[in-house]
Simulated scan of single mutants.
Amino acid sequence: MHARVAAAIATAALGVAALLSPTPVARAGESGEPTVIAHRGASAYAPENTLASIDKAAKLGFSWVENDVQRTKDGELVVIHDGSLERTTNVKELFPGRAPWKVKDFTAAEIARLDAGGWFSPAYAGTRVPTLEQYMRRVERNHEKLLLEIKNPELYPGIEQQTLKLLGNQGWLDQKHLGRLIVQSFSADSIRTVHELKPALTTAYLGRPSVTQLHQYARFTDLINPSYGSISKGYVCTVHSVEGAHGRPLGVFVWTVNDADTARKVKDYGVDGLITNKPDVVRAALEAG
């Protein structure tokens, strides 16, 4: 009788552990190739961080996309990379007297008026800056997976909690979606906060910690995501030797790889993922060996 009870408890414990542990992200060695992540969508072919860009990634056959999240003056989460609206919208034309056109100084309604595609190509004129809610709905419709970057968190107190709340409201924090979502940031404090608020979620630190710092970062992250030019084969091997927050070796996604030679080089380093504006170019290079 006691043995049956013990077995039942052990089974239950395993079930709880499974619920708390995210589905492993695809790693080199499991699929045979590094994961290819479309940077800000397929941003070489459509305006970055727009619905058009993730639609283009889907049409090219890529399931992983990356984006950047910031917050408007009135508290709406929007998908845009730069702290200023100047480079990727027509904000200077619509609001000429409001330099330096910071995202945080504009309301969601004002940002919704901006053209976020005309700068890229006349074919995309009228494309809008999406809210994170709109973006998540499109990612879901496209059956895509998301590497979400919390951008400039020091400008937006509480953005980690707000982002997780929105993701939860959109159904992206259930067990089915945990294997399709990674949250990353250049801020270690921000990623530590995300891990504390949602321990089951996969997290990534953007940057290149020193070898001596890796165990410290491994307490709250699952991946180390540096620029490709900052790493070596030895560094990747060392990262893989450290156990991350969910009991698996730390992974490495590198950015931003846009040419065949670099793709082959970092593949040889043993990286687990390549973040790229040109996912088709990178995929072809990896498949060609």
Rank of each mutant, 00 (worst) to 15 (best):
K73I: 13
G171P: 03
Q216R: 12
G32V: 09
A285Y: 00
G234E: 15
D105A: 14
G171E: 10
A28V: 10
E196I: 13
L274T: 15
L114E: 08
T163A: 06
Q216L: 09
N277C: 04
I37Y: 03
S190M: 00
L173I: 06
A18I: 13
G117I: 02
K73V: 10
G29C: 06
L114F: 12
A112S: 14
V242G: 01
S53Q: 00
L181E: 01
R283Y: 09
L20F: 15
G41P: 04
R27Q: 12
L94P: 01
V211A: 12
T203C: 10
Q216P: 03
L197H: 06
V254W: 06
L20M: 08
I191A: 01
H246T: 12
R113F: 13
R98Y: 08
L148G: 03
E154D: 10
R264K: 13
V282I: 15
G83N: 14
L178A: 08
D189S: 11
G117L: 00
W255A: 02
H240Y: 11
G97H: 08
A125M: 05
L146M: 08
W255S: 03
F95Q: 08
F220N: 04
S232R: 06
L14F: 10
A58K: 01
D261C: 06
R180H: 11
S187C: 10
L85E: 02
E287A: 05
I159V: 10
A7F: 09
P209C: 08
G126D: 01
R248D: 04
P47N: 06
Y45P: 01
P157A: 12
A260K: 01
D174S: 08
R219M: 10
A112M: 11
A116K: 01
D68S: 04
A99E: 12
A52T: 13
L286N: 05
E140K: 13
A7E: 15
L147F: 09
T89K: 03
A218V: 14
A245R: 00
A99K: 08
Y205K: 03
D261S: 07
G117W: 01
R264N: 07
Q184Y: 05
V266R: 00
A52I: 05
V139W: 01
L250D: 11
L178K: 07
G61L: 10
D280N: 10
N258R: 05
R283V: 02
E30Y: 11
A58I: 02
H195F: 13
E160G: 00
L14I: 14
I150F: 06
I54C: 02
R180F: 04
V139Y: 02
L286H: 03
G229A: 13
G273I: 15
D280R: 05
S227Y: 15
S185M: 09
I80H: 15
L197D: 10
I111E: 06
P100H: 14
I111T: 14
P249Q: 02
R192F: 03
G289S: 04
I9K: 04
T221S: 06
F220E: 04
L148K: 07
L20D: 10
D222C: 04
Y135L: 05
A188P: 00
G244W: 01
T35V: 03
W64H: 04
N225C: 15
A99P: 06
D74W: 10
L223Q: 09
M136H: 04
W255Y: 15
D115C: 09
T107Q: 01
E243Q: 11
Q162D: 07
V65I: 12
L250K: 03
T221A: 13
D189Q: 07
K151A: 13
S43N: 05
H143N: 11
E76W: 08
